[in-house]
């Protein structure tokens, strides 16, 4: 089974969860699913992140009782691991729209499904859906996820991966998505806008990483977005 098949089979396996309103696929699989025919050629990780609004936590726990092909990891309580190794791990992450501080992080304690809740995910809004063989998959709006990826402070391979996801989103974004992203960027605190621009600069200078798409051919797009963000900065 190729990666696309593994990804789609995993999403079908958790279909009851994806049926819960406002639950979205987030993270590195979003660019794969935004490609025509869900081509999934922008593979940068071997797991699937699912954004769970804290207001839907109870409904997601109920839906998980109908999932048979995965079970909770004993080591990582918010991760579900597949029974069949051809499927991918699923990582559940909390989203709290009521968080004002995008740098806030907290743990939603729960005996069944505890969640890390990241404030930056409050920028993510549910977007359109794609369907595969009867399973509807809700994706986030590109603009919010792009900003979240450019804000999340990480290092090493994980950080590189987030920046490559951001790059894939830039490549796939329509003009309207970028307009929306610039608008949301203007509402961020100054140090967060600085972090976004610094991460875009780092993305522009990133060397190819084995097993990940080469970012260098897209440097002009990154430069164009940086110019737009600079142009939207408040005048001193």
């Amino acid at each position: 089974m190729d990666f696309r098949g593994r990804l789609l089979a995993t999403l079908q396996a958790i279909a009851p969860v994806l049926d819960v309103p406002d639950v979205v696929v987030i993270g590195s699989q979003v660019p794969n699913l935004l490609q025509p025919d869900l081509a999934s050629t922008l593979v940068v990780s071997k797991d699937v992140d699912i954004g769970v609004p804290v207001t839907r936590h109870g409904a997601v726990k109920e839906a998980l009782r109908h999932v048979r092909a995965l079970h909770p990891s004993t080591e990582e309580p918010s991760v579900w691991v597949p029974v069949d190794p051809l499927l991918l791990e699923v990582n559940f992450v909390g989203m709290d729209e009521s968080i004002d501080d995008t740098e806030e992080t907290y743990v939603l304690e729960d005996a069944e499904l505890p969640l890390m809740v990241f404030g930056a995910l409050s920028l993510v809004r549910p977007g359109g859906t794609v369907a595969i063989e009867g399973t509807r998959i809700r994706l986030p709006r590109v603009a919010g996820l792009l900003l979240e990826k450019l804000l999340t402070e990480r290092s090493g391979i994980k950080g590189d991966r987030d920046l490559l996801v951001a790059l894939a989103l830039i490549v796939l974004a329509a003009d309207a998505d970028l307009d929306e992203g610039v608008g949301a960027y203007r509402l961020l605190a100054p140090h967060l806008r600085h972090a976004v621009r610094a991460n875009l600069s780092a993305l522009s200078l990133m060397e190819p990483v084995e097993g990940m798409p080469d970012p260098r051919p897209q440097r002009a797009r990154v430069a164009a977005l940086l110019r737009r963000l600079d142009g939207s900065e408040p005048r001193p």
């Binding site: 080591e75 990582e76 402070e153």
Partner: peptide, 22 residues
Amino acid sequence: MNVEALHRRARQARARAQVRRW
């Protein structure tokens, strides 16, 4: 269930946010 791992990660995320402000 090892919820302490999640709390540890949350503390690390808050520390990284402090570094970013610095």
